[in-house]
Design a protein around this nucleic acid. Structure first.
Lengths: 144, 144
DNA sequence: TTAACTGCAAAACATTTGCACAACC
DNA sequence: GGTTGTGCAAATGTTTTGCAGTTAA
């Protein structure tokens, strides 16, 4: 997507949702969109203060949260702010309920047997290959 | 794995690595191994204090970190403690370098075209289906 | 004009660390 | 006995929130 299209879409989404297109929001969005480093809030802030010295870190957090709700931005990795653990060591995958946070293990042999695309061998040494599903679990679905 | 086997393996791994098999370590490991809830450190601690009222939360953190290094336990989700973001919205996957934390996007059409196993339809409504690769990126590999 | 947004400062969490005592080998 | 582990308390790091002044529509 080129810069203008990106900005146009951004402004459209904001308007559709009654959000003001502020200087801060525009710059935060553009900086993130032009990065391929998957930056943290702090890393983004560090980039941005160069151009906007008064920008505060809490605005970055607030803005990213807003964008996430609108689907303009995604949180990479998977889930919430606290680490979770498992003692299950054998190959398996996870379904994560975005609503209640429940995690369910599953196995998927035909996936495990797949080879990753040739062109990705250059990435480095791959130690693990896992699937993460996101969605709403049946329990949460039936609550509505 | 049954309880005794699990405990036996646990004690073996500890001994191999010169770790003392303390009451705390054993109970933390067993409680995690017997849970399928993928608990956080705090959640584990809450379960454990019922039986060991003096167990402190920092021992739980320390112990989980130790177990993780030994490969007895895994951190679910993916990466480090701070959230990271991306504005890329189209379907893609991630390679994560466990050493330097670099994230690399990639596409995998033949995976995207796969249907998830029938028996997992009961999980709920699935909104996203992604692959996460873990490993060491080529940059880090060449550093050694 | 007016409701929404931002910056500041402080709070709320989550996680880690230093130190002294306790427990294991 | 000596080293390793634990609990306490305090420090760090990350993210969130209340409030009052500022700004986009």
């Amino acid at each position: 997507m080129d810069k203008n299209k990106q900005t146009a879409r951004f402004e459209e989404v904001c308007r559709e949702n009654g959000l003001k297109v502020t200087h801060q929001r525009l710059e935060i969005y553009r900086t993130l969109a032009q990065s391929d480093a998957h930056p943290s809030a702090e890393a983004l802030h560090k980039l941005l203060v160069e151009k906007m010295p008064t920008l505060s870190i809490d605005t970055v957090y607030r803005t990213l949260a807003t964008f996430e709700e609108l689907g303009l931005v995604k949180r990479v990795g998977t889930m919430a702010s606290r680490a979770r653990f498992e003692a299950k060591i054998d190959q398996h995958h996870h379904f994560f309920c975005d609503q209640c946070g429940q995690l369910i293990d599953f196995t998927w042999n035909s996936f495990d047997a797949m080879y990753i695309p040739e062109e990705m061998k250059g990435l480095g040494k791959i130690l693990e290959k896992n699937v993460v599903l996101h969605g709403i679990c049946s329990k949460c679905l039936s609550k509505k």
